[in-house]
Design a binder for these strands. Structure first.
Lengths: 141, 141
DNA sequence: TAGGTGTACTATATGTAATAGTACACCTAT
DNA sequence: ATAGGTGTACTATTACATATAGTACACCTA
């Protein structure tokens, strides 16, 4: 099992599965997005540099840069030339198109869960359980 | 028996975006899955043949076949040699691994919706609205 | 100034996706 | 038995995405 991880300098953990059909840069994006959305990474916090993360994960710097570039264009992080990449602030205004896009995939997932035999109540509980767990995990001072 | 369960007018709706980064066979899979999960296609109903769907969508038969093959291996449809492809029955036993996999992506989506400013209540309502809409759309005899 | 940083660019190798074509076994209706 | 439709399995080719390797440059900080 090929996996790389690292915990230091502000980022908790990055796990890559080289055998997954999902592109490496997508896995990196999902990893960092998850850390931000769950509050494991706070606004303004510094991410590992392109070269550092490339070394610690044994992944090509170009691949790391592509992940960072995407994350920046999606508003999750921002880059400062010569300094590094940092966690951005959550959006202030709502983006209806983006919301609709994500909502669509969530609906599809819920439909499939119902198809697999789960009830609405079960689904609500399973989702809410982890969401509230996220809240607990955030830095509360 | 002059009237058989033919796919008159064929299948309801198959929409392909040739400019999408998502592979064509994935789009076909998602389309058919959606029709099954929403009840637009009922158990036992016949799907368009590989060659017919290839013609009506202007897509290579091999691409259609790949979509059908995947859907069969995932349990949504079943193929009968010489007769065609048909909608399978929903699973009887629960598949914990598969449920966990889908649940994971649903959670990620919900987390991102919260990040985008939606509240739990809003998300519950938006999801449940379409789910119940699906129920209304099914053939109720 | 030196070293770390983001960024851009070319080039190459690999795998997937999509197409085109052919062939065969099976089912149904005639 | 025959003809036509069906699923299925191949080969081959083209196009594109992914990942890698290497180089170069502008910027920031100590």
């Amino acid at each position: 099992m090929h996996e790389s991880n690292r915990a230091e300098g502000g980022i908790k953990i990055i796990i890559i599965d080289f055998r997954s059909p999902k592109p490496i840069y997508e896995q990196i994006k999902d990893n960092i997005k998850h850390l931000i959305l769950t509050g494991a990474l706070s606004e303004g916090e510094k991410l590992p540099s392109v070269r550092e993360l490339a070394q610690t994960t044994s992944i090509n710097p170009n691949t790391i840069q592509k992940a960072y570039r995407d994350l920046e264009s999606e508003g999750f992080i921002y880059s400062v030339l010569g300094r590094g990449n940092f966690v951005a602030a959550p959006p202030e205004k709502r983006n209806p198109e983006r919301i609709e896009s994500i909502l669509s995939s969530v609906k599809s997932g819920v439909r499939e869960l119902l198809y697999l035999g789960l009830t609405k109540q079960e689904i609500w509980e399973l989702i809410e359980k982890t969401i509230t767990a996220d809240e607990e995990g955030k830095t509360h001072g």
